[in-house]
Design a protein around this nucleic acid. Structure first.
Lengths: 199, 199
DNA sequence: TGACTAACGCAAAGATCACTGCTTTAGTCG
DNA sequence: CGACTAAAGCAGTGATCTTTGCGTTAGTCA
């Protein structure tokens, strides 16, 4: 059986509706913010009946989470074999992913759902991000190189990125993401992140 | 004119209503989550008419933000004169503040409001947190000691704390908060945060 | 003490959302 | 091609939420 996961009838209307709804969600999240995205609004924009959306996704948070899920499974990284370079790529990827319109909003949406699903959403979100960095780490470890613990990467690279994006700290760009990795890999040798003329 | 900021009639009913509403908000945020806090529910619990709440705060996010504001202005730190110790206290304070029931929820609430107020709420939130660390830094600088940049403290201490609390990473406790500061002040000398038998 | 008024309570009306039986559409498969 | 059925559309219902006009309460100040 060719597993396409969901949609027992992937070949037509069902898929079209899903696509239209997803597009509508992305647009609305950008326009009015994740908190103000309601199912009727999404349905209107998607040219779909609200009841269809209710039946498929149930609640707005669930819909948001679904879109967020699908959104991050699109791209696939490639390993170069150099730990620092690969980590930098993962960092830049994370930053890009977080910076695009609605990026933080989706992050927030996934963190939001009610207590029972919440832990699950959090785990999934954290593990997706972790996976990006764990791949390079595992590869380097296999090559016999000394590697920092994943927790350390999260603290020193991922956490600052999230924090700065959420708070809209200026000068949080790709160069900064690379600097974070650089300082993690070669502490004290390079300039500290942000030491490039921040007036 | 004795400026008491808000409330042109601070001496009675108005203040009581505000207190009752604030208490109700805190309780509800803990019980049902910040997203499910509605104005009618708050009003019911506070024994107040919904219209009063609507007239004073307008929307639920605005109410949440107001409560979050008032919540953090309660305590006042004290400086000991030792940079590292003072930073550790600030870190522990931040963690405690974030960990108490509804702490993250309030953080999220303040980040949420619609685009126009959002930047303001973010700035305020960031500046409040920054202030906790800037005081020790300024004091140490005045004493002629070398001090790290505030941005660096945010990246290395505050960001990981926020990140780990939001994602419910285990073993994120006071000891861990101190370790973050320790590693910032004396890089490489002490054990890296988390290196205390994390199996 | 008594007039003044900001803020609250009350109630009604309108809007939106969430849900559900039933009908219709459109892929799927023999 | 024709029967089958998963999914979408439609329409009606109940439950909140939100807003607004108006009367009432309770601090404030001369």
């Amino acid at each position: 059986m060719t597993v396409k996961s969901k949609d027992s009838r992937p070949g037509g209307r069902s898929a079209r509706v899903r696509a239209a709804v997803h597009r509508a969600v992305v647009e609305l999240v950008q326009e009015v913010g994740a908190d103000n995205v309601t199912i009727p609004a999404v349905a209107r924009r998607a040219g779909v009946n609200p009841s269809s959306v209710y039946r498929r996704w149930g609640t707005a948070p669930a819909l948001l989470a679904d879109v967020a899920d699908q959104r991050q499974d699109e791209e696939a990284p490639e390993l170069l074999g150099d730990l620092r370079e690969d980590l930098e790529r993962a960092a830049v990827w994370t930053l890009t992913d977080l910076s695009r319109p609605g990026g933080v909003a989706f992050f927030r949406a996934e963190v939001a759902p009610d207590v029972d699903e919440r832990r699950a959403g959090l785990r999934a979100c954290l593990e997706r991000v972790s996976a990006r960095f764990q791949a390079p780490l595992a590869a380097a470890a296999e090559r016999g190189e000394p590697v920092p613990a994943l927790e350390r990467v999260l603290d020193r690279v991922v956490a600052p990125l999230y924090f700065r994006v959420v708070f809209s700290v200026p000068e949080t760009d790709e160069q900064y993401a690379r600097d974070l990795v650089a300082e993690l890999c070669a502490p004290g040798r390079d300039a500290a992140p942000g030491d490039r003329g921040h007036r």
